[in-house]
Design a protein around this nucleic acid. Structure first.
Length: 230
DNA sequence: GCGACAG
DNA sequence: ATCTTGTCGC
């Protein structure tokens, strides 16, 4: 699995690519079975702006126990600047590389960011899903440009995430009394199912275990790569 | 025109 | 994303 050699290098090309991929998103499908042996992946990316280095991590967890089963990383050169709405072009190449280094395929990939909750309905998680064919969801830490009502204080409470009058995701309370996370469909899964998975992955902390493991791993990989480069 | 803006 | 110590609170 790898990224096309003609990866967009300009904003104009990126926007055109989003238009091309957008109709390929499947915004429904089942949640993975929560049984031993079902694998769920977490992916995340870290950067060294000084050297334009990017480090991605892909971590496989057993969905039933949330134990780490396998880890993979990929380090490379940053391929695109950060532009709101075009985050996928910056993060996806390294993420696809890391995912490809896993020896098993996950039933679902959890991304740090948005899926169809996006100005053109093709955020990071949906983009990655269409490219890999894997089911994906996005769990973001901030509301981006969307609006929502505060969910109830209890874990599991949620409210719709709205963009231009359209429901694009949910603000979900994963820990009592703590700021909610923002869940959206990436690819091949429904919104209720994405919410269910998010809650299953957050028995203790605000963010999914998948995201937490991938976050620490990509930071370690980046530090290692930068120090090795001297 | 200006501000806001996933990570 | 990243720069960054201690501190308040369960």
């Amino acid at each position: 699995m790898s990224v096309p050699s003609d990866w967009p290098s300009t904003e104009r090309e990126a926007l055109a690519e989003q238009q091309r991929l957008r109709p390929m998103v499947a915004a429904d499908g089942p949640a993975p079975d929560r049984v031993a042996g079902t694998l769920v992946a977490g992916v995340d990316v870290a950067y060294d702006d000084e050297r334009d280095v990017v480090a991605a991590a892909a971590v496989l967890l057993d969905y039933a126990t949330l134990e780490v089963v396998e880890e993979a990383t990929a380090v490379g050169q940053v391929a695109f600047p950060y532009l709101p709405g075009l985050l996928a072009f910056r993060e996806v190449p390294a993420v696809v590389e890391a995912l490809g280094r896993l020896s098993a395929e996950p039933a679902l990939v959890v991304c740090d960011g948005y899926g169809v909750a996006h100005p053109r309905r093709l955020g990071l998680a949906s983009h990655l899903g269409v490219l890999t064919g894997l089911p994906t969801i996005g769990v973001a830490k901030t509301p981006f440009t969307f609006t929502y009502r505060a969910p109830g204080a209890e874990r599991g409470a949620w409210e719709p995430l709205v963009d231009a009058g359209e429901i694009v995701g949910r603000a979900v309370r994963t820990r009592e009394g703590v700021k909610p996370v923002f869940v959206s469909v990436g690819h091949r899964i429904g919104l209720a199912e994405a919410t269910e998975v998010t809650l299953a992955l957050t028995p203790h902390y605000r963010l999914p275990e998948t995201t937490r493991r991938a976050d620490s791993l990509c930071r370690r990989a980046l530090a290692e790569a930068v120090s090795a480069a001297g």
